[in-house]
Simulated assay, not measured.
Amino acid sequence: MFTGIVEELGTVAAVEDQGDAIRLGIRATTVLEDVGLGDSIAVNGCCLTVTTVDGEVWTADVMQETLDKTSLYGVRPGDRVNLERAVTADKRLGGHIVQGHVDGVGEVVSRTPSEHWEVVEISMPTALSRYLVDKGSITVDGVSLTVVEAGDDRFTISLIPETLARTTLGTRRPGDRVNLEVDVIAKYVERLLPYSGTGASDA
């Protein structure tokens, strides 16, 4: 589990084509401080497993399923990526509950700068719109954010200077693809609603 609070910007060091998968090498420092083989690190919101560590470069195998359904498809050496280690029980939950399981890929539609923040509009698959509400939570490329306005096929977020400086969202441009993960609590509520009124308490 993650919180959507990015710990550092890593750099893609290598992309090895393995046919139905890629081996992704990422240069980092902070997320490697206590890393072990088999640990989970979120890369632009995708939960990946550490397979090797060599100095400041760690690798992960990314299956075709992940490439098909996330913006990691087409990643190239030199690209910057948001990194976060899995949360531990003694840490503050600064964002919201993030699983690192991408629900869909959106696209940056527009950016509107202001004096102290920037409003970004992002398109999304219409099937995800039912999980978004104004002032609710959304994860974009692994960053925990608050929805400003939720529409049928797009939403807006406001980015403060800290987020712009410390994550890839500061450099995303209209047309760029981004990974989206909706609030898992909303999905559980939806799943439970058809069963309301049928529990043991109704007997």
Rank of each mutant, 00 (worst) to 15 (best):
Gln18Ala: 09
Gln18Cys: 13
Gly19Leu: 04
Gly19Met: 05
Ala21Leu: 07
Ala21Asp: 10
Arg23Gly: 10
Leu24Ser: 12
Leu24Val: 03
Ile26Thr: 07
Arg27Thr: 13
Ala28Cys: 00
Thr29Tyr: 04
Thr29Ile: 12
Thr30Glu: 10
Thr30Cys: 00
Thr30Tyr: 00
Thr30Ile: 06
Thr30Asn: 03
Val31Asp: 14
Gly36Gln: 14
Gly36Lys: 14
Gly36Arg: 15
Gly36Glu: 14
Gly38His: 04
Asp39Met: 07
Ser40Asn: 01
Ser40Ile: 06
Ile41Thr: 05
Ala42Glu: 09
Ala42Ser: 15
Ala42Thr: 09
Ala42Ile: 10
Val43Glu: 05
Asn44Trp: 03
Gly45Lys: 13
Cys46His: 11
Cys46Tyr: 02
Cys47Lys: 04
Leu48Arg: 09
Thr49His: 01
Thr52Trp: 08
Asp54Lys: 03
Asp54Gly: 05
Asp54Ser: 09
Gly55Phe: 07
Gly55Glu: 01
Gly55Leu: 05
Glu56Lys: 08
Thr59Glu: 12
Thr59His: 13
Asp61Arg: 14
Met63Phe: 10
Gln64Phe: 01
Gln64Pro: 03
Glu65Val: 09
Asp68Ala: 14
Asp68Gln: 15
Lys69Ser: 14
Lys69Thr: 15
Lys69Phe: 05
Thr70Ser: 07
Leu72Val: 11
Tyr73Cys: 14
Val75Asp: 04
Arg76Ile: 15
Pro77Leu: 02
Pro77Thr: 01
Gly78Pro: 13
Arg80Pro: 07
Arg80Tyr: 11
Val81Pro: 13
Val81Gly: 08
Asn82Gln: 11
Leu83Arg: 00
Leu83Pro: 05
Leu83Val: 09
Glu84Tyr: 05
Arg85Tyr: 06
Arg85Phe: 08
Ala86His: 00
Val87Phe: 02
Val87Arg: 02
Asp90Ser: 02
Asp90Ala: 06
Lys91Val: 01
Arg92Met: 09
Arg92Ser: 04
Arg92Cys: 05
Leu93Asp: 06
Leu93Lys: 00
Gly95Val: 04
His96Ala: 00
Ile97His: 01
Val98His: 01
Val98Lys: 06
Val98Ile: 03
Gly100Met: 03
Gly100Thr: 05
His101Ala: 03
His101Lys: 07
Val102Ile: 05
Val102Cys: 02
Asp103Ala: 08
Gly104Leu: 00
Glu107Trp: 06
Val108Ala: 01
Val109Phe: 13
Val109Thr: 12
Ser110Arg: 01
Ser110Gly: 06
Ser114Phe: 12
Ser114Gly: 15
His116Ser: 11
His116Arg: 11
Trp117Ser: 15
Trp117Ile: 01
Val120Leu: 11
Val120Asp: 03
Val120Met: 15
Glu121Trp: 10
Glu121Ile: 08
Ser123Ala: 09
Met124Tyr: 10
Met124Asp: 12
Met124Glu: 11
Met124Gln: 14
Met124Ile: 14
Ala127Arg: 15
Ala127Cys: 13
Arg130Trp: 08
Tyr131Ala: 12
Tyr131Gly: 07
Val133Glu: 13
Val133Asn: 10
Asp134Asn: 14
Gly136Ser: 08
Gly136Cys: 01
Gly136Trp: 06
Ser137Glu: 00
Ile138Lys: 07
Ile138Thr: 03
Ile138Tyr: 08
Thr139Glu: 02
Val140Ala: 02
Val140Thr: 06
Val140Arg: 02
Asp141Met: 12
Asp141Arg: 05
Gly142Phe: 04
Gly142Ala: 09
Gly142Tyr: 07
Val143Ser: 10
Ser144Gly: 07
Ser144Arg: 06
Ser144His: 08
Leu145Ser: 11
